[in-house]
């Protein structure tokens, strides 16, 4: 187990290195920070001096190794926009984003799993039909539109919940739901079809023949067999939320998390900050995947990690 973990961590490190290279190249392609930072009437000398100050006049390879060397020392550089360490900014914002992501995933799982299981208990039954219909309906709604709809109804019309910010638990509800609903609909369909398959499996017949109660057969025997595919999708959804959907939803709800700051970094062409954000997200994703792999092994003893 220990050896395998080491191997997996090594793989993770390779992924992070790959991401580092891609981010480094891409951020250097999307724009020139000098254009943004200096006034339009800046002279060529001023531009050259500024480039020199940022180290942008050095050969690209030297810049890259310098960047990697800093990373190794947990130095993600200073934000061009805010003039302070990028890591400091990220660590301020990250907890809010993780809070939002975990809340969304928790809501999605807590709704989707029981709903999918109940639908699967009676395929083609009324609950099953309603579940499928609701899922398909919700799936076709774009996320930003869903967010705007929520704001219109619950914040503007009814005035029950705040439209933006992150000051209290009330502020969490709308953005978390906006993130949760599309995930929930995809998850419901997978739980449902997976559970239907498992309930037809021969081991379920055996458990019935042993006289086990339905609750145990569904909730333990079949559920554990559904767990790996359901977890795979949940993990994938979590990563998509963390590294993508939050940008949209945090913007719509003015949720001051990492997604919002990422968008601002792009607008201000703060490539150091953007680079740092992408790097941190990549590390989180790698660590998260490592944890998921270990949980797989715990659920299904047949899974070989290497």
């Amino acid at each position: 187990m220990g050896r395998i973990l080491l191997l997996r961590s090594w793989h993770g490190l390779i992924v992070i290195m790959g991401v580092t290279i891609v981010v480094f190249v891409v951020t250097r392609m999307i724009g020139d920070p000098v254009d943004i930072m200096l006034p339009l009437e800046a002279t060529a000398e001023q531009r050259a001096a500024f480039e020199h100050q940022l180290g942008l006049d050095r050969p690209i390879l030297v810049q890259f190794f310098d960047y990697v060397w800093s990373l190794a020392q947990f130095d993600l550089g200073d934000s061009l926009w805010q003039n302070r360490p990028a890591l400091e900014i990220i660590l301020e914002r990250l907890p809010l984003t993780l809070y939002l992501c975990f809340s969304a995933i928790a809501v999605a799982v807590l709704v989707a799993v029981p709903m999918g299981v109940i639908a699967a208990l009676k395929p083609g039954g009324i609950i099953d039909k309603i579940t499928v219909l609701l899922s398909l309906g919700a799936l076709s709604v774009p996320q930003f539109w869903l967010g705007l709809l929520f704001i219109m109804v619950f914040a503007v019309q009814l005035g029950w919940l705040p439209a933006g910010g992150a000051a209290s638990f009330k502020h969490l509800i709308l953005p978390a739901l906006t993130l949760a609903i599309p995930t929930m609909t995809r998850l419901v369909m997978v739980v449902r079809s997976q559970m239907m398959d498992e309930l037809n499996a021969q081991y379920v017949k055996t458990a019935e023949a042993k006289g086990m109660p339905l609750f145990r057969i569904v909730g333990l025997h079949a559920m554990r067999n559904c767990a790996v595919p359901v977890m795979t999708l949940t993990a994938w959804e979590f990563i998509r939320i963390l590294s993508g959907y939050t940008v949209v939803v945090e913007t719509v709800f003015a949720w001051p998390g990492l997604g919002l700051i990422a968008l601002q970094a792009i607008e201000r062409q703060d490539l150091v900050l953007l680079q740092a954000i992408v790097f941190v997200i990549a590390v989180i994703v790698v660590v998260f995947n490592l944890a998921v792999d270990i949980i797989y092994k715990v659920i299904d003893p047949r899974i070989k990690l290497d």
Partner: peptide
Amino acid sequence: RGREMAMIFQDAMTSLNPLF
């Protein structure tokens, strides 16, 4: 069921839960 009357099936591989 399972107490006074019990049953075994053809394929013990699929008849046993693989995860327990």
